[in-house]
């Protein structure tokens, strides 16, 4: 349970970090931010990077700011920064504060980062689900320049993203939710703080007594989180309530392509998809 040897780099500026990453990426050099997923993987020797570029000392990456209608989250913003986000950032802040308490445990949240979770792209990651559901934008930097990647194009499979090996996810941009927007999150796992077996995040507005602008995202069910258009179609224009919520759950179960593991067959996750979507919608309605 000891990580393999690596060469440690601790740059102080983004430019230096990107130059180092460009140099070491071809030898499986990696970025080290919070390390709450990478370091356990190294302890198991599932990951054996030859170089680590530690960005914890890089100035400016800890910015958490409102930028127009967008919440900009820098690469060093820890999960714990969202513990009390309901007091800030309006309806989006309330959503983030709800979701963050499901991420591992308190001492993991004081160290792990939102951007790190997005770069790691575990199918059970709450932030990956959040980014997809809200339509976030990833800002990737490399020595060659910066580019923006839409969440829908970013997640490509189990721990696979659109990031190139020499790119650093420097920022994620989360669009604010309109005031009055409702949100609901529901996660199922067997132990508090464990990886999600299945989860759903939903947002919608109520206009004239009917659901509008519904967003339904699922995580942990498939190899990567995604929005379920069929579930959203089952909600929009309907009155919020049991019938619409269950229809959305069933619509989700009908279209998912569930992953399997030793404990959980695909059929179980398909059933679970319906349950987590319906329960997330029920929570949103409270």
């Amino acid at each position: 349970m000891k990580p393999a040897a690596f060469v440690y780099h601790a740059p102080r500026t983004l430019e230096a970090a990107l130059a180092l990453l460009a140099e070491v990426a071809p030898q499986d050099g990696r970025i080290l931010a919070g390390g709450q997923s990478l370091v356990p993987a190294m302890a198991f020797r599932l990951a054996r990077p030859t170089h680590l570029v530690d960005i914890n000392g890089v100035a400016g990456l800890d910015r958490l700011v409102l930028d127009g209608g967008v919440l900009s989250v820098g690469a060093l913003v820890r999960h714990a920064a969202f513990h009390k986000a309901d007091a800030k950032f309006g309806a989006l802040g309330a959503l983030l504060a709800d979701v963050v308490h499901n991420i591992a445990h308190y001492p993991i949240r004081t160290r792990g980062t939102m951007c790190g979770s997005l770069a790691h792209a575990d199918p059970a990651s709450e932030w990956c689900l959040t980014a997809v559901t809200l339509g976030a934008e990833m800002v990737a930097h490399s020595a060659k320049g910066a580019r923006r990647i839409a969440a829908a194009d970013y997640f490509q499979g189990i721990m696979q993203t659109a990031l190139e090996p020499d790119e650093l996810l420097a920022e994620v941009r989360l669009p604010l939710l309109p005031e009055g927007a409702k949100h609901g999150f529901y996660e199922f796992n067997r132990r508090a703080g464990d990886f999600a077996i299945g989860m759903a995040l939903v947002t919608y507005q109520v206009k004239g007594g009917k659901i509008a602008e519904a967003r339904v995202g699922i995580g942990g069910i498939e190899g990567a989180p995604r929005r379920i258009a069929e579930a959203e179609a089952a909600l929009n224009g309907q009155a919020p309530g049991k019938a619409a919520f269950e229809a959305a759950g069933q619509a989700t179960a009908a279209v998912v392509d569930p992953i399997e593991d030793a404990q959980t067959p695909a059929a179980y996750r398909r059933d679970l998809a319906a349950t987590v979507v319906t329960r997330a919608l029920e929570r949103a309605a409270i």
């Binding site: 370091v39 714990a80 001492p107 160290r111």
Partner: peptide, 10 residues
């Protein structure tokens, strides 16, 4: 001032 896992830090 923050509680952290010392096995997950170098």
């Amino acid at each position: 001032g923050e509680p952290m896992r010392s096995c997950l830090m170098f």
